[in-house]
């Protein structure tokens, strides 16, 4: 019977076995034995066990849960009501706070340090706590004088790759938009250029916890190899599996362009080479796949002209891509 119970629990029992099990279970005395078999079976299954045909199903449930959690952040009038009460509550508290403030005024004021990477540059920064940050072109990060002593809070604008020092006592928190990324020690990449509509986080190793500044009721813990895309406008979060090197290789000066449209490619070139581009509307949907290591811009442009029938012309300090009709004719 134990064997049949096992088969039943794993969804492998056939019709006759299920009938047999039912008959057996109709004797109340057998039910406690059944419970024993059940908990024994559960214990025998390691943490990693997962029913083979259920992975896809679970993935969609998890995705839906994550989606629902994050979309809840923005809505609900009830929350506004809570804010109202909270405001009153904090007003009362602040009366007490002013008194405390006068007694603590002797402490040194808090200053902010900010680090920037100009367009066309990648900066590598060592933070006071020993964590390393690679700042991508056109990005900025800020932290205060209490960093590494009282907090490890960082404000990020743009893209950065983090290698965070282990310190479970003071979590390392990156804020961008309303998203809070909390880590204790790990490597991950955050991309939050203001012109993009999403904040993208790619986790290489360790674990990070995402939460919303506006609401403390939800958090999502990322696993290595995952990319989280947070839509800043409607506060939704999407999780997907990615090849992380595609998103983190920029720190070594490598840019991977994988099936991206001309308009996206141009954006990345602008940041990397500090050069303004423009392009004709009718070619914006040409797609490219290539990798840039340390090649000069001229080589990249030649490459693009080879892949697609486009031509680059310089007008003042802007490079303009347009359709090369001669090449189109050759192709015919």
């Amino acid at each position: 019977m134990k064997e049949i119970v096992k088969k039943y629990l794993e969804g492998e029992a056939g019709f006759h076995e299920q009938v047999q099990l039912l008959k057996w279970l109709r004797h109340p005395n057998n039910r406690s034995v059944f419970q024993q078999y059940k908990s024994g079976w559960k214990k025998n299954h390691a943490d990693s066990w997962f029913p083979a045909d259920a992975v896809k199903s679970w993935n969609s449930i998890e995705a839906a849960i994550v989606q629902k959690s994050f979309s809840k952040w923005q809505k609900s009038k009830k929350i506004h009501l809570i804010y109202k009460y909270a405001a009153i509550f904090f007003f009362v508290l602040s009366l007490g706070g002013t008194i405390r403030y006068y007694t603590s005024i002797n402490q040194p004021p808090v200053f902010y340090t900010s680090v920037m990477a100009e367009n066309g540059q990648i900066s590598k920064v060592e933070l006071p706590d020993g964590s390393l940050v690679w700042l991508n072109s056109g990005s900025q990060l800020q932290y205060n004088t209490e960093f590494a002593t009282k907090n490890r809070d960082i404000l990020l604008n743009g893209e950065a790759y983090f290698h965070v020092q282990q310190n479970a006592k003071t979590p390392f928190i990156v804020s961008c938009n309303n998203l809070k990324i909390k880590v204790t020690g790990t490597t991950f990449n955050v991309s939050s250029y203001p012109e993009n509509k999403t904040v993208d986080i790619v986790l290489e190793s360790g674990s990070v916890e995402l939460s919303n500044k506006k609401s403390s009721s939800f958090s999502y813990t990322m696993k290595p190899g995952e990319m989280a895309q947070f839509e800043t406008e409607n506060q939704k979060l999407q999780i997907s599996q990615v090849n992380t090197t595609r998103f983190t290789s920029w720190k070594d000066g490598i840019i991977n362009i994988y099936n991206q449209s001309l308009s996206e490619v141009v954006k990345r070139l602008e940041i990397r080479y500090n050069q303004n581009f423009d392009f004709d509307e009718d070619i914006k949907d040409f797609h490219y796949t290539f990798t840039i290591k340390n090649e000069p811009l001229s080589e990249i442009i030649q490459l693009m002209e080879k892949i697609t029938p486009v031509k680059a012309v310089q007008e003042k300090d802007v490079i303009i891509f347009c359709l090369d009709k001669n090449k189109l004719r050759e192709a015919d």
């Binding site: 039943y8 969804g11 299920q18 559960k42 997962f50 259920a54 199903s57 679970w58 998890e62 959690s69």
Partner: peptide, 20 residues
């Protein structure tokens, strides 16, 4: 608390039977 990990735990042990 809405922790996806807990849902996964329940899911993996109940899925075969719920399906059955």
């Amino acid at each position: 608390n809405g922790d996806p990990g807990a849902y996964k735990e329940v899911f993996r042990f109940l899925y075969p039977r719920l399906k059955g």
